[in-house]
């Protein structure tokens, strides 16, 4: 791995050049990402604080255990792992596009940008399926002595503690904030994926039109790439907080 060290003897702070040896736009993208990581961090930490402040919290392996076209098969973690791999792979194709950009190879950038855009679309489709599955699912819940059928929404959580009712085990309503945190944080992340996708599509069009060849560098693709990798980075932590632990 490159050390990132710069030769000695240059007066970096004497003006006229970036003391970080980085262009303004890239510095600002990095600082935006730092502030965005605090936004996501605040959401995830408030989720953790609420979860530790509750007497009962549903087991994620019990809530997220379905897979498209697999019916009621119990497959904890399977679908969300697929989503994780899709996002990691689209991150790889993005960094390969940046690599081709360094070599000023327009065809290569186009190829890898298309692959990245497809990866982003696949991730968003997976998320749409997962949300639909949760919002339209039906679970028996014991409410005021009567069994009702609930989906998982921002106000209803059918995954509470189990109790005996009429000779069989029925769930009671779980902590109400579960759905709120889940839909808000994965939704906020999904919104980032969506905006990253739009940025990537614009970068693809600009590459095709030859704008970056005229400009003489592909730094815009690099900046879009930073944003896209950040979306992947955040997903790693959302995956940790909501599904793994």
């Amino acid at each position: 791995m490159a050390s990132g060290s710069l030769p000695a003897g240059i007066k970096w702070w004497s003006g006229g050049k970036s003391p970080y040896n980085v262009n303004y736009g890239k510095i600002m993208m990095w600082y935006f990402l730092v502030s965005d990581s605090f936004t996501f961090g605040a959401f995830l930490i408030s989720y953790g604080s609420t979860r530790l402040g509750s007497d009962y919290w549903p087991d994620p392996n019990h809530v997220f255990n379905s897979f498209p076209f697999m019916g009621h098969a119990n497959l904890p973690l399977a679908f969300v792992s697929l989503m994780t791999f899709i996002l990691i792979f689209s991150s790889v194709t993005m960094v390969l596009a940046v690599h081709e950009g360094h070599k000023m190879n327009r065809k290569g950038v186009e190829k890898y940008m298309i692959m990245t855009i497809i990866g982003g679309l696949a991730f968003l489709s997976c998320q749409a399926w997962e949300w639909t599955h949760l919002l339209t699912g039906s679970h028996s819940v014991l409410v005021d002595g009567k069994v009702e059928h609930w989906a998982t929404t921002i106000t209803k959580n059918p995954f509470g503690p189990m109790v005996e009712h009429a000779g069989q085990l029925v769930a009671t309503p779980g902590p109400q904030l579960f759905g709120g945190f889940f839909f808000f944080i994965t939704g906020f992340h999904g919104f980032h994926v969506f905006s990253g996708l739009i940025i990537n599509i614009i970068m693809y069009i600009k590459t095709r039109l030859g704008h970056f060849d005229q400009r003489g560098h592909y730094e815009m693709v690099e900046k879009a790439g930073l944003y896209w990798h950040f979306v992947d980075l955040v997903w790693v932590f959302v995956f940790l907080a909501f599904y793994l632990i």
Partner: peptide, 17 residues
Amino acid sequence: YIAWVFMHMGDESKLFR
């Protein structure tokens, strides 16, 4: 790994990192 390799953080100057 995502920040240092994919985002090329490892290639930036120490001060910027």
